[in-house]
Design a binder for these strands. Structure first.
Lengths: 228, 228, 228, 228
DNA sequence: CATGAATGAGCTTTCATTCAT
DNA sequence: CATGAATGAAAGCTCATTCAT
C-alpha cells in the first residue's frame, strides 16, 4: 500500500471545498466527477480487479495520475464509488412520495420502486456484489455509507405502521424483515439474471417475465403482510 | 463423481482415459482434481480476475503449466468450476429425501435445504455472482450446466402438486416462481451479508439472526403457498 | 542443447533401416515422414523460433515426444528439414531433361525451371531465408547438404560449354556466376514479393507480372551469355 | 531525421511533443530512440519471434514497459523499425550524387551503391526477409513505407532516360525491371551468403569474391541496358 | 514402441503506482 | 494544477524438453 494509507479523507486527496466555487474549482470538480462517474461504470462492469486504473482514466478522458491526485489510490476511489451509489439510491428513495393513508397502495409503490431501481441501476447491483466478494472491506472504511441505511428501512417502517393502524397489516412483523424480503426478490432477480436464464432455460429479461415477477413480488409481499 | 466423464472435452485438454487406471493415470486424476478444487476456492474468494493462475496452481501444489495442460486456459478452468459447483448442488438436491405425504413439512424441508446449502457453500454464491458479473459468458459455453436445473425446480413442482392435491396449497402458483422466491431469500441473505450488515448496522451472520431469517423465510413461503 | 549434442545421425534418433521393412517399420516410417513434412510446412510458415514443436506435432497428428524420439531435438529436426528440401530440389533438377544440342533453348529451360521451382516451392525460399537468419549454423552441421550443390551448377556448366562450343555463348563466363544470376533473379522476386508489392505499389504476384518477369529474366540471361 | 515526426501515431502511444523541448522531453526522445535502435539490431539478428521484448529493452538499457509506452506493442515497434530502415535507405539514396551527363558511369554508381548498401546494412536485408516471412502484414499497416519507393526507382528512371537520350541505352526497358535486376543481384548475394557459401563450397564473403560479384553485376546490367 | 504427465524458464502484456517537472 | 515519463511486479500463456512408465 502507499505511504499515506487509504483513508476516508486525507489531506492529499482533494475534495473541492463547498464554499464559493471559482472557475478553477469547477474545472477540477468536473475532472473529479468525470473520474467518479467513469469509475462507477468501469467497476460495475469489470469488478474491482478487472476495473483497471487505466480503463477508468481513459473512460473519464483524463489521466491515471489524476485518480491518485483526487482519490489517493484505486481503493480510495472504489470507496467513494460505493458511497456515491448509496447516496444516489438514498436520494431516489427520499424523493419517493408515499401516501400513508392507503397502506396497501403505499406498499405496492415501495415494492415497485425497489424492483425498478435495481433494474434501472444494474451498476448498483454489481458493485454491491463486488464489495461483498471483498467481504465488505471497503464499505467498512466509509463513515458515510451507514448514514444512508435508515431512510430505506424507515419508509417501510412507516408504511407498515400505517397498515397496522388501519388493521390491514398484521402487527407482528419487523420492518427490517419486510425490507429484506422486498430487497431479496428484487435484487436476486436482477443480480442473477444471466445464470438464472441459463439455468431455467428462459430469458428472464423479457418484459413479460419481468412484469410477471413484479406482480408475484407484490402478491407475495401482501400475503406476508396482510392481517389474518 | 468425475469417475464417469460425460464431458464435451476439446482435443487439446486432457481428460484421464477411462480405461483401466494405472498408478500414473490415478496420479494424473489427482492432479486434475486438486487443481479443480483449488480453483473453486480461489475463484470463489478472489473472483475471476483476482483469482490468478498462480494462486490456483500453488493452492493445488502443482504448476501453472498443468492448468493449461488439463483445462486449456483459465477460462476453460472456470467453466469446469461452474459445472462442478452446479453438479455438486444437484447431487445434494438429489440426495434430499422428501416425504410428499406431508406437503407442508416437505416444503419446509426444501426451504431449509436451500437456505442451508447457500450458507454452507458460500463459494457457490460468490462464483455465481462472479459469473453474473461476466454476463453468463462462461456458463453459456457449457453444455452441461443446463442439465442441472430441472431437478431443482421439479422437486418443488412435486411438493407443490402434492399440496394442491391435499388442498393445503393453492393451485394457481407456478413452481418456477416458488423456486425463485425461496432462492431469492436464501441467496440474497448470504450473498449480501457484508453490505447488509454494514447497512443495517447489525451482524446478520449471528446465529440468532440466521435462525430468525430461516423462520421468516418459511413463514413467508407458507403464506404465499397456502390455500385461501 | 541436449546432453548428446545434435548430430547428423545419432544412436538415439531412429532412421528406419533400409532393409526389408516390416509393418512396424512402415508405421514408424509414416510417423517420421509425417513429422518431417509437417515440420517443413510449419518452419516455412513461422520460421524457426515461431515454428513450435507443438505446432509441428499437431500438424503431423502426432505428439511432441515423437519429435524427440525421431529427431533428437528441434534443431535436429530443422537440420533434416533443410536436407530434405535440398534433396527435393536436387531431385527435381536431376529429372530435368536438357537438350544440349540447342544451347539457347536449353538455357531458357533452365531459367524457367529455376523460376518455377521457387514459385512452386515457397517453403524452399522461406526456409533458406530462415537458415540465413541463423547464419547457416544448421546447414553447416549437415554432411549431406553439400552433396546437392554440384548438380545445380553442373547443369549450367554443361549448357554453357555446349553454347561456347557452338559459338553462341561467350567463353569468358563462369558457370557459378551464371547460376547465381539466374538464382538471384528467380529467388529475390519470390522471396521479397510482399515487401516489393508494397514498395512498388503493384501486386507482383499477378500472372502477367510474373510472366513479364520470366521473360525479362530470360532476356537478361541471354544478353549476359551471348557471344559478342 | 526523427526531428520532424510526420507520423500517424495512435493516441495511446506517445510521440514526444513537437513544442519547445525541455530536458525531460529530450530524455524521453533519447529513450524512444534507444529502443528503436536496439530493436533494429535485435530484430535483425533474431527475427521477429526470436527478438524478444526483453532482449530489446535490455539492449536499449531501458525497461520492457517503455516499449509499450512508446510503441504500444511489439508489433507496433516492429512497424516503426521497418519504417525507419526504409527511411534510412531512402535518405542514403537521396544523398547520392548522380551525374546524368555520363549515363554509363551513373548506372555503375547506382549498382555500386545498391550493392554496398546491402553489404553495409545487413540488418536491412534480414529485416525485409523477416517481414516477407510474415507476408508483409506489418508493412501493409504502415502508411509511410510506400512513400519511400519512388526515389529508388526514379533515380534509375532518370539514368535510364539520360542513356536513352545519348543513345547509349536501349529504349525498350522499364526502369522498374532494371531496378529489380540490380536489387536482385545485390540482395540475394548478401541475403543468402551463408547457405550459398555452404552450397557452393566457398566463402563468398571473401573480399575478392565480393569484388568479382560487383564487377559481374555491373557487366550484367550494362549488357542488359546497352543499345544493340 | 509409444505416450500421457510433468517441468521451469520464458514469452508478451498489463498492473498500480511514483517521479520529476 | 496538470501531466508525460518511468518503474518493477505480476498477469496469462507458450516454450522446448525430460520423466516414467
Amino acid at each position: 500500500m502507499s505511504a499515506t494509507p487509504t483513508k476516508t479523507r486525507t489531506a492529499s486527496t482533494r475534495a473541492p471545498s463547498a464554499r464559493r466555487t471559482g472557475v478553477r474549482e469547477q474545472a477540477a470538480q468536473t475532472t473529479r466527477d468525470n473520474i467518479l462517474k467513469a469509475a462507477i461504470k468501469v467497476f460495475a462492469r469489470y469488478g474491482y480487479e478487472g476495473g483497471s486504473v487505466e480503463k477508468i482514466s481513459k473512460a473519464a478522458k483524463s489521466f491515471d495520475r489524476m485518480i491518485y491526485y483526487y482519490f489517493g489510490s484505486k481503493e480510495g476511489l472504489f470507496i467513494e464509488v460505493l458511497e456515491e451509489i448509496y447516496r444516489r439510491m438514498n436520494d431516489a428513495e427520499t424523493a419517493l412520495d408515499i401516501r400513508l393513508d392507503t397502506p396497501v397502495e403505499a406498499l405496492k409503490a415501495v415494492v415497485r420502486f425497489v424492483s425498478q431501481y435495481y433494474r434501472k441501476h444494474p451498476e448498483f447491483v454489481t458493485l454491491l456484489n463486488t464489495e461483498n466478494l471483498h467481504k465488505g472491506k471497503h464499505i467498512s472504511k466509509s463513515l458515510r455509507a451507514r448514514e444512508y441505511s435508515s431512510p430505506a428501512v424507515s419508509v417501510i417502517e412507516q408504511v407498515l405502521a400505517a397498515g397496522v393502524a388501519s388493521k390491514e397489516f398484521r402487527a407482528d412483523l419487523r420492518a427490517r424483515d419486510l425490507y429484506l424480503l422486498i430487497a431479496s426478490m428484487g435484487y436476486f432477480y436482477q443480480s442473477n439474471r444471466y445464470t438464472l436464464s441459463a439455468f431455467l432455460g428462459e430469458d428472464i429479461d423479457q418484459p413479460e417475465a419481468v412484469a410477471h415477477w413484479d406482480d408475484f413480488m407484490i402478491d407475495t409481499v401482501l400475503r406476508t403482510v396482510r392481517a389474518a
